[in-house]
């Protein structure tokens, strides 16, 4: 050790080996002040939720699991699932068209995305809802030639199909860009290596490119699914019995607006939470090899915290 610049009257402690000394962690008093302020505000909010009769919790309880609401939740989930599956399927096709070497396919894909991103969803939905006005019949047959089967448009595309069609086609435009961004983010060297090894084209995409693209596709895709899930409430303009429409119908009858909006809200929150949990686990799956070690799940993290706390408590006792 060098001699200290200021000749202090050193306590005997300062001569000792630092490794043998107790470490006193730095204190952060302002953090505790911040925590206290937030806790007070939270307590006020919760107190209001419980005591303010305006929230009308008895009505909330009455309707939260009512048959009509559960059926409406089912319709909302159905719209989301169909919109997601069809939207992303078409989105992948559009992304591949855009990335293909054919200038024609590139332009078609670009134009699709341009058109469907430019028109507000609610306008698109109303168009589909009124499609029977534009085309009365659907004929399947030889283009510009005779037709084999013919359908009445009103039978083929009911309000529900119109809603699914509208949501899926709108979703496809956004999905296409998300998938494309994921694919172009994969290092070009990966494709070169796959090509140099003679791996067939489709296999290159499925086995090499897509799993790596998924890392950047997933967070954006989850965003889209969640926003589509809540976006299904737009469909209420077409008088389809999804969650938001059903809540409106009921409060139209009994005038308990806040309670029924809360019913819808809690269902939306619950389902979104579920989707977020699924997202977390799917992302972990695709993180394989991208990180040296997988990050712990929230549950594992909580458990580690808990055992660390207990170990500390045991040590001080």
């Amino acid at each position: 050790m060098s001699v200290s610049a200021r000749p202090l009257v050193a306590a005997p402690d300062d001569e000792a080996d630092p490794a043998s000394l107790e470490v006193v962690p730095a204190r952060h008093p302002w953090r505790w002040v911040g925590v206290a302020v937030v806790l007070v505000l939270l307590a006020q909010f919760v107190h209001g939720l419980v005591t303010n009769p305006g929230w009308d919790w008895p009505t909330f309880r009455q309707y939260f699991t009512a048959d009509s609401i559960l059926r409406a939740v089912g319709v909302t989930i159905e719209l989301t699932v169909h919109g997601t599956v069809l939207g992303f399927a078409l989105g992948v096709v559009l992304a591949l068209m855009r990335l293909s070497r054919s200038p024609f396919l590139q332009v078609v894909s670009w134009t699709y995305v341009w058109a469907f991103r430019s028109i507000p969803l609610i306008v698109q939905l109303l168009f589909w809802f009124n499609i029977a006005y534009l085309y009365q019949r659907f004929d399947f047959g030889i283009p510009f030639g005779p037709s084999f089967i013919s359908f009445d448009t009103k039978d083929l595309i009911g309000p529900m199909s119109a809603a699914v069609l509208g949501l899926a086609l709108h979703q496809a435009a956004y999905s296409a860009e998300i998938v494309r961004s994921g694919i172009i983010a994969v290092d070009h060297g990966q494709l070169e290596a796959a090509a140099a090894l003679g791996i067939p084209r489709l296999r290159q995409f499925r086995r090499i490119v897509l799993p790596q693209a998924m890392r950047s596709i997933l967070p954006n895709a989850a965003n889209e699914v969640i926003s589509l899930f809540k976006g299904t409430s737009v469909v209420s303009v077409m008088a389809i019995g999804e969650l938001f429409y059903q809540a409106q119908v009921i409060y139209g009858r009994n005038a308990r607006v806040v309670a029924l909006l809360m019913v819808a809200t809690v269902w939306y929150i619950a389902m979104t939470t579920l989707l977020s949990v699924v997202q977390h686990h799917v992302e972990r799956h695709y993180a394989k090899g991208a990180l040296r070690d997988l990050p712990p799940t929230p549950l594992q993290r909580l458990r580690a915290r808990w055992s660390a706390l207990r170990a500390r408590a045991g040590a001080t006792r």
Binding site: D187, E192, A193, A196, L197, G198, R201, Y286, G289, A290
Partner: peptide
């Protein structure tokens, strides 16, 4: 066609400066 070129490449091993291993595979 690309398929045939890929087949020809299986007779030629190529080692890259930056390895280009597939990071998501063991």
């Amino acid at each position: 066609k690309e398929r045939e070129i890929l087949k020809q490449r299986t007779h030629i091993g190529f080692v890259f400066q930056n390895f280009n291993l597939f990071p998501h595979l063991t």
